[in-house]
Design a protein around this nucleic acid. Structure first.
Lengths: 334, 334
DNA sequence: CGACCCGATTAAAACGTGTCAACTCGTTCC
DNA sequence: GGAACGAGTTGACACGTTTTAATCGGGTCG
């Protein structure tokens, strides 16, 4: 042992017990007599001993940790999911290793390899694409996996939010407000969420007995404020609808700003609703209506599912849980 | 799959070499003949072998990882810092363990303990308060430490942004626009950033030859949009200033909204400037002027400092680096 | 031809902890 | 009074890897 590092053995010597007893104090305190435990704990304090997690993990065969792989740590959606994960994991005495895949397959694969090397008990992941082979490889190696915000083919647990219902909710709300000509502003349809929210929007139209062409569709390359501005400019040029549904709050904010600058009043001339209910939505000059997702719950339930599977790998049935989103009405569509 | 997880030994057997050679393929590929290397790599692929990181760390005495402890993973400031850290660390073949202290001493201490247990090479931390004893304890144990967004007493590396200069920048800008009566809206002065930005604001007044009482100070308990609303209501009741400087963009957005609702025009009646330049600042109906901090650089330089210290612990002089913030002028103060 | 050397490979010894069978010692039961 | 018992403690081993010194074989030099 290096000179700087103090191990379980030194603690044992100072406390006048065997290393095995020190280990018991750390892992099974109830097995050791109170007086001995005090002596050991004092020695630990005096020496500033910190257990070597690698050795513990090596011996135990697995780390008391779970991995969380998200598409973007900067996205408030995932931040809130992470909070839910963190809370449950910490309750059940597990650490969380947070990884960012940046929607790149390469980074996702790298992250999964690191997690596998660390021998985490399980992984929560929002896959970067539809290809789940690397995720399934992980599961086959014996690591529990739960898909987050992505439905599962059935051989995995998954937790997601019903995006079709969300799109339906938004458009039904706009229709109830009297809109007849609508627009849907989204990112590329290749993004699952955009496609599903559109599906929901169309369903709402059908339910109301309107033709699909009552909904003008605009897909912009980037789902941010600038994308929203581009979409708004197209709408301004081509004749404004009564109401606009955006696949994302940042898009909606971009639209809102461009319309305001053009002298169009929201909600008097055009009603507007976004998606995600990010914190800023309520803070703007015209507070934005939005679709709120139970993100914290998503992380919480996903982690409970994961740890349950870890604790009882055999008697575990994979579940696919789908949450329902919620409509939040503010000024922009009142 | 076979119950015994596949280790280096199984790979060695399949490739017809010794375990030591497999280890060399993984860690010192140049030492092993190309043909042997191929055979081993094929075996690794066939068996789906993944190196056990705990064993490697145990043997090596330290993990190729650094810890990053931030006050709030949801805060865009820290998200951007984390990006800088991640990029540099990954370039230099290190993993990043991201921890959230939520401004709580307890969570900070828990996180530091986990990092110490994991035997990370170094830690980047924004301390939750002024008490650095736990940080210093870590350094004394031989873990390199760099303070982020917090100045150092001298015995540690630190990387921060000059908040006094930022406050000066903001108020000087407002004065140059002709303002004579100003207000400073901030969170509790106990928060270092709030205090320093105020100091800078006062310095700007002195430079311009104005009395300190030309700056009305409002401290609200929460630094969010609601806090901004509260401050704005007070200002509306007590007589509006010409210009308002907010310690934070969320406060500024709250102020902006409350003023707009009261029929006060920004920037015509009152000029407004925030701090942090969060993404959303530019997206609002009235784009917000702000003070931008080089957050990505902060993370990048901090990590370089940290890894340099790790690579050469003896020949390392602690440095305190301070970056300068930048003024971003938009509609709200034009 | 033998000594020597060099590159490639191997065998064995750590690294620090958790587990588990074995052991001690005082108590209870028959 | 001896056996069975149980709580508390011990000591040795195993976990999977990296590293070090030793080994091997083939080529070069003297």
């Amino acid at each position: 042992m290096g000179m700087g590092t103090v191990g379980i053995k030194e603690v044992a010597r100072l406390a006048g017990v065997s290393p095995g007893t020190v280990s018991n104090v750390l892992n099974h305190p109830e097995r050791v007599r109170a007086e001995t435990r005090d002596r050991v704990e004092r020695a630990i304090g005096d020496l500033g001993f910190v257990r070597n997690g690698s050795a513990a993990t090596l011996r135990a065969g697995q780390n008391r940790a779970v991995g969380l792989v998200v598409l973007d740590v900067g996205n408030p959606f995932f931040v809130e999911v992470a909070r839910g994960v963190e809370d449950v994991a910490s309750d059940r005495d597990h650490a969380v290793i947070l990884c960012n895949s940046g929607e790149s397959f390469d980074k996702e694969a790298r992250n999964l390899r690191v997690l596998a090397e660390q021998r985490v008990r399980g992984v929560l992941i929002t896959p970067a694409g539809e290809d789940l082979t690397s995720v399934e490889a992980l599961r086959d190696r014996g690591v529990a996996v739960v898909l987050v915000d992505h439905s599962s083919p059935g051989d995995l647990c998954s937790v997601s939010v019903d995006d079709v219902a969300g799109g339906d909710l938004a458009v039904t709300h706009l229709l109830s407000r009297g809109a007849e000509r609508l627009a849907y502003v989204s990112g590329p349809m290749g993004i699952r969420q955009c496609g599903e929210r559109r599906k929901g929007a169309r369903r709402a139209l059908r339910t109301a007995g309107l033709p699909v062409r009552a909904l003008e569709e605009l897909a912009v390359p980037e789902m941010n404020a600038n994308g929203g501005r581009l979409a708004a400019e197209k709408l301004l040029a081509g004749g404004l609808p009564d109401a606009i549904f955006c696949a994302n709050d940042m898009l909606a904010l971009g639209v809102l700003r461009a319309l305001s600058q053009a002298g169009v009043s929201v909600p008097d001339d055009v009603a507007l609703i976004g998606y995600d209910d990010i914190e800023f939505s309520a803070a703007g000059t015209v507070p934005l209506s939005s679709i709120r997702q139970p993100t914290y719950q998503l992380g919480k339930i996903a982690t409970e599912l994961l740890l349950d599977e870890c604790d009882d790998p055999e008697g575990h049935a994979h579940q696919q849980i789908m949450f329902q989103p919620e409509l939040v009405v503010r000024e922009s569509s009142r």
